[in-house]
Design a protein around this nucleic acid. Structure first.
Lengths: 165, 165
DNA sequence: CCCTTTTCACCTAGGTGGTAAGAT
DNA sequence: ATCTTACCACCTAGGTGAAAAGGG
C-alpha cells in the first residue's frame, strides 16, 4: 500500500543544467521490534528486530530531470508503495510490521546513477547526497493501533472519503 | 479525447546505449475538407482545408530512454489526446474535424532533442528520423458517420464495455 | 441541414478502512 | 492474545458512446 501522508520535499541549490535522479529509501531507526500499549498510548520495545529484508529503492518517476525542473516543483513521493511481503516482485519497498523506520531522500547526479536500481542499495560517494527528517519517522502496522491515526487517515486521504461522517 | 485504436510500434536498429526521445505528430494528408456520403459509404471532398492549427507534438512519456529500453518494448501511443479546440492549453494535439491526417513517429537522438517541445514543430536533420504508415491515415469527426466504426470502437475499447450487447 | 457541444450513465483502474477469518 | 490476510463497500479519477441541445 501507499504511504500516507506522503513525503513531499522542496530542493534548492542544484545546478539548473545538471541532470539528477531523486530517490527514496527507508531504513530502520533501531534494532528493535515494538508493540503498542493502549492504556499508555505509547510504543514500547518488544524485543529485537526481525531479520533484514531485501533492500528496495523508490526512484522518483520524474527521474532523471534537470536541477531546474526539480527545483521548480514540490517533489511528492505519494506513489511510493510499501509491503510486508519479503517475496514481493512489484518493486515495492519491503518493511517489517511493528518496526520504526526513517525515510531518506537521495539526490543523485546523473553520471553517478548508472547502477541505480529499484532492487539495489543506493550507491554512495561524490555526487550523491542523502537527506532525512526526524519528524518523518514512523512505525509500521498491519492494523491501526490508535483512533487518532485512523481519524487522521480518514479525514485527510481523499480515497477514504467513504468513511467520513 | 484519446485516439482509438492507439498506434503501437516496435523499433529496431537503435544504438542500445544511446538515449533517444520518441515523439508523434499528426500532419494533414491533403488540403481538403471531407464529408461522408452515407448512401455510398465514402468520404468525398467537400472543399478546401480549414486554416492551419498550432503545431503540437506528443512526446512519449517514457522519453528519454536508451535504445535498449525502447527496443525491448512495444511503444504505445494510447495516452495521446486529440482536440478540435484551437485554443487548447492542455498540450493536446489540435486537429480540424472532417479532415484526413497521417500520424508520424519520430525517433530523436537525445543530443538533437534539446529544443523538443509539445508546442513546437519537431526539429529535423541529423539524428532525427520520421516514420509514417499509410494504413494509419484517418479522418477526424465529432460524431461517428458509420455504424461499422461505432461497432469497432464499442467492441474493442475496454472503456466502452457499457455499450456492448 | 449538417456538424458540434454538453451532459450523462456506464465502464476501467485502483486507493481507502472495516470486518471477519486465519495464523502463531 | 495479538497480529495478519483476504475480501468488501465505497471512494477518486478518468475514458466510453448516446442523446439532447446548440450553432451556423
Amino acid at each position: 500500500r501507499r504511504m500516507f501522508p506522503a513525503m513531499r520535499v522542496k530542493i534548492s541549490g542544484l545546478d539548473p543544467h545538471q541532470q539528477y535522479y531523486i530517490a527514496m529509501d527507508i531504513v530502520p531507526v533501531d534494532n528493535k521490534r515494538y508493540r503498542y500499549v493502549y492504556h499508555s498510548s505509547k510504543w514500547m520495545v518488544a524485543g529485537n528486530a526481525d531479520s533484514p529484508v531485501p533492500p528496495r529503492v523508490y526512484i522518483h518517476p520524474d527521474s532523471p530531470a534537470s536541477g531546474e525542473t526539480w527545483m521548480r516543483q514540490v517533489i511528492s513521493f505519494d506513489k511510493l508503495k510499501l509491503t510486508n511481503n519479503e517475496l514481493d516482485d512489484q518493486g515495492h519497498i519491503i518493511l517489517h510490521s511493528m518496526h520504526k523506520y526513517q525515510p531518506r531522500v537521495h539526490v543523485i547526479r546523473k553520471d553517478c546513477g548508472d547502477d541505480l536500481s529499484p532492487i539495489k542499495p543506493i550507491p554512495s560517494g561524490e555526487g550523491v547526497k542523502a537527506f532525512s527528517f526526524p519528524e518523518t519517522v514512523f512505525t509500521t502496522v498491519t492494523a491501526y493501533q490508535n483512533q487518532q491515526i485512523t481519524r487522521l487517515k480518514i479525514d485527510r486521504n481523499p480515497f477514504a472519503k467513504g468513511f467520513r461522517d
